[in-house]
Design a protein around this nucleic acid. Sequence first.
DNA 1: TTGCCAAGTGTCATTGACTGCCATACTCTG
DNA 2: CAGAGTATGGCAGTCAATGACACTTGGCAA
Lengths: 234, 234
Amino acid sequence: MQQVSVAGSTESPAAEPLNAQAASDGLADLQRRERKKRQTRHALLRAALALFMDKGYDHTAVREITDAVDISERTFFRYFANKEDLVLSFARDITSELMRELAARPGAEPPFTALRAAFRAAVTTLAAERDAEAGESVYPSIIRLIDSTPALMAAHMRYTHECDEEIAKVLAEREGIDPATDRRPWCAAAVFDSLLHVTCREWQEEDSGTVEDMLVTFDSYCEHTAGALSGHWT
Amino acid sequence: MQQVSVAGSTESPAAEPLNAQAASDGLADLQRRERKKRQTRHALLRAALALFMDKGYDHTAVREITDAVDISERTFFRYFANKEDLVLSFARDITSELMRELAARPGAEPPFTALRAAFRAAVTTLAAERDAEAGESVYPSIIRLIDSTPALMAAHMRYTHECDEEIAKVLAEREGIDPATDRRPWCAAAVFDSLLHVTCREWQEEDSGTVEDMLVTFDSYCEHTAGALSGHWT
DNA sequence: TTGCCAAGTGTCATTGACTGCCATACTCTG
DNA sequence: CAGAGTATGGCAGTCAATGACACTTGGCAA
């Protein structure tokens, strides 16, 4: 994810692992300017999320978010390319975690298996990550928010589709083939995120599901796919 | 596609096949009001497409489209829910053709095979359909337009995802299973349109491809999918 | 400490996509 | 032709997004 988006993606812990004392909040070792930027960004994310959950994405004006954080509307768009981008930043976090996990999977694992395992690991990691104030991971509610908001759904699907390129590249590399001529890595990536989307749809519809439920559902979709593509079903 | 969108989908020829003399333009048997609406709608589609192809979707204002047709901007939004919706109306045409063809596939055909065949038939039919003025089918350029415009790409992906529901329903019915409990029809539908999207991406990138090329590419993706999901590739 | 440069922010004006409201014009039906 | 119903236009207003420019602040070096 060598994203160079306007706002930059949420800095991963791995990005600057050198400084000692990168403890609890992880801000102590930064320059004031950088610290303030992180604070502002974080405040925006937090305020936006609260408002979105409360009144819905569509019925929340950017103005309301910036008022809550007391910055100008103009500044919002210096942190996020647009309103959707704020929400998608969480999806980017998931993706980068996914790619990290994928890189860590043993080479002996078949590609699609590795992808599934990496996904499970990434989701588990992020869902376990306690949020400072909320005390709970925000990711489950983010997923619900996206899947229940048409505009975000569209943006998210396009985003995952863009990610296919990198996933295909990594899978191809794992298997020692050329993604420019071999279509299999693209198939795997495409199927992966289409199954992801049906999973989310189903998971989000019954609002009682835990993250583990989602993973189970996802696995079920994966297991059923081969059978769904060949022959009759009865 | 029981769409009841603001503008209604482009009426299919089959929609009112009763009146005699539904000849050449197919408008003679309609009331004046209905005729005018069709004309306006058609003019909007035509003008919009021309502008989009010329200056790009993003750099074409709704105002320019309505000026070209000499109607008010307000009226545009009575024909189309929004700017994207105009382009998506073509996607809806493709979908309804797809569903028609799917319904016509013999029951002996396995579900995914039927879906692939229906897709081939639908695309072939629509691509062959000569356009009054252009003399050429507009669909290939529409697909390129969508795939090269992020906003349309997102909207289109969401749209096809919505269509999965109906596809899954039809496939389930074919096989005599319940789509509410069986995930296979959803797998098939989801994989179908994810492969469709990778196909379009590849096809659109080399701008020389014919529609037949696209179908061949799509078939190739379908053939490679089973292998891409299990085991190693080398 | 001082002072400079760059980065971050605010203000303002503007564009473009939509939406609601109401007045007007047209079409259809009896 | 009259009245009901429908299509359209005009207008005001909201909201997202962007460019231009001025101002403030943090980092750094003399």
